[in-house]
Deep mutational scan, measured.
Amino acid sequence: MSIQHFRVALIPFFAAFCLPVFAHPETLVKVKDAEDQLGARVGYIELDLNSGKILESFRPEERFPMMSTFKVLLCGAVLSRVDAGQEQLGRRIHYSQNDLVEYSPVTEKHLTDGMTVRELCSAAITMSDNTAANLLLTTIGGPKELTAFLHNMGDHVTRLDRWEPELNEAIPNDERDTTMPAAMATTLRKLLTGELLTLASRQQLIDWMEADKVAGPLLRSALPAGWFIADKSGAGERGSRGIIAALGPDGKPSRIVVIYTTGSQATMDERNRQIAEIGASLIKHW
């Protein structure tokens, strides 16, 4: 067993022997301040990774656009098919120029040779490549099948209805392509620590998230040296922004954090800054 596999296998073990965790309302004060600064709703939840206990939450059962955070769930569904012998990570998928959609920095470079399922998941999570996500959605049967996968996990809230990039439209009061912070946090925890996926697939999923290259201005910008984070960000229309993450000190994750916002007129930089400040408060009061 590799060191990384050992780390993920012992996530519940280490967490069980940690000192009790206590909620700190100071972080919620910052979440509410972010709402004021952005002029928009902000949803927040913080779960203990081992027990699933909610440590703090704000608007945990209000719907927010998922945006690209759905790509972690998508690759979880792909990995479940791999575990069941219905898919192979090494299978190569070929596609054409007509398949390319807006923001496809990886797939646009491989029109000639195609990409493997493993490479597509890596591109979808680490670079948020939209064509990679659409190609992977095709392998599982489309958005409705991802929703069905989530329902089978016990998540009857999260739903995907459309493809990239239309799913980022974020129309107010439109339930399409949305989740709730509580539902997303619980589902992410199941994917990373539950028995739904094999140990190898859980490790692969967290490795992809740990290698995320496009979430630097968010929670990662607030992390002290030595902290662990595996995350996936999302951005959408109407001032929408979000991030889902597993993080913790001492090089291992111990909490799940989900943050979503929508309806702001603020710039992307300002949305990023507010999420980073929430992260800084979380870490300060850990």
Rank of each mutant, 00 (worst) to 15 (best):
L219W: 09
R238W: 04
D207G: 06
L188H: 06
P65M: 11
C75A: 07
R241F: 15
W163K: 06
L196E: 05
S51Y: 08
T107E: 01
E87T: 08
A170M: 07
A183F: 11
A222R: 04
G90C: 05
L136Q: 02
M180S: 06
Q274E: 11
V72C: 07
D36N: 10
D99C: 04
N272V: 12
E277F: 03
M209L: 14
L205D: 01
E237S: 12
D36F: 04
G114Y: 12
E108C: 15
G251C: 11
E56H: 08
M153K: 03
L191Y: 10
T178P: 00
L100A: 12
T262L: 09
E169Y: 05
E175H: 14
V42Q: 01
T187M: 14
L137A: 09
P60A: 10
G236F: 04
Q265F: 04
L191W: 03
I140W: 10
L135W: 05
D83L: 04
N130M: 02
I259Q: 01
E119V: 03
L74H: 01
D250H: 02
M184R: 01
T69S: 13
G90N: 15
P249Y: 10
A84C: 09
K30A: 10
R162L: 09
R220Y: 10
M180N: 08
A266Q: 11
A148E: 08
A225V: 08
T158I: 05
K232G: 00
E61S: 05
H94F: 03
W208R: 01
L55K: 14
E119H: 10
H24A: 07
E26D: 02
L100N: 12
D161S: 03
D36K: 12
V72N: 01
R189Q: 15
I45C: 13
A225E: 02
V106G: 15
K53P: 11
F228D: 14
T179Y: 00
K213M: 04
D83K: 03
P65K: 04
N130L: 03
G76I: 12
A185I: 11
R238A: 09
R241N: 13
P60N: 14
D113G: 02
L137Y: 12
P217C: 14
L218S: 03
K32F: 15
A280S: 14
R92Y: 14
I256E: 13
G239S: 09
L218F: 04
M153C: 02
A245V: 12
H156D: 11
R159V: 12
G248W: 10
I171V: 15
L89N: 04
Q37G: 05
Q204L: 03
L219D: 15
G234P: 00
D250R: 03
H94D: 02
F149K: 03
N173I: 04
F149A: 07
R271F: 13
V258L: 03
S122A: 13
G90Q: 10
V72I: 02
D83H: 04
I278N: 00
E145A: 09
L282R: 01
T147A: 05
R176T: 08
F228N: 15
Q88M: 09
S68P: 00
D207A: 06
H24G: 05
A266V: 07
T126E: 13
D269R: 05
A185H: 01
D83F: 04
T131R: 06
E237I: 06
L47Y: 03
T69F: 01
A183Y: 05
Y44F: 11
P253H: 03
V117T: 07
R273D: 03
G76E: 01
G279T: 06
A245P: 00
V42S: 03
T131K: 03
T262I: 07
T262F: 09
G142A: 04
V106I: 15
Q274H: 08
W163N: 09
T107G: 10
F228C: 12
I244N: 14
L205C: 12
L197P: 06
E169S: 03
Q88K: 14
L188G: 07
D231V: 13
D33Q: 03
E61T: 04
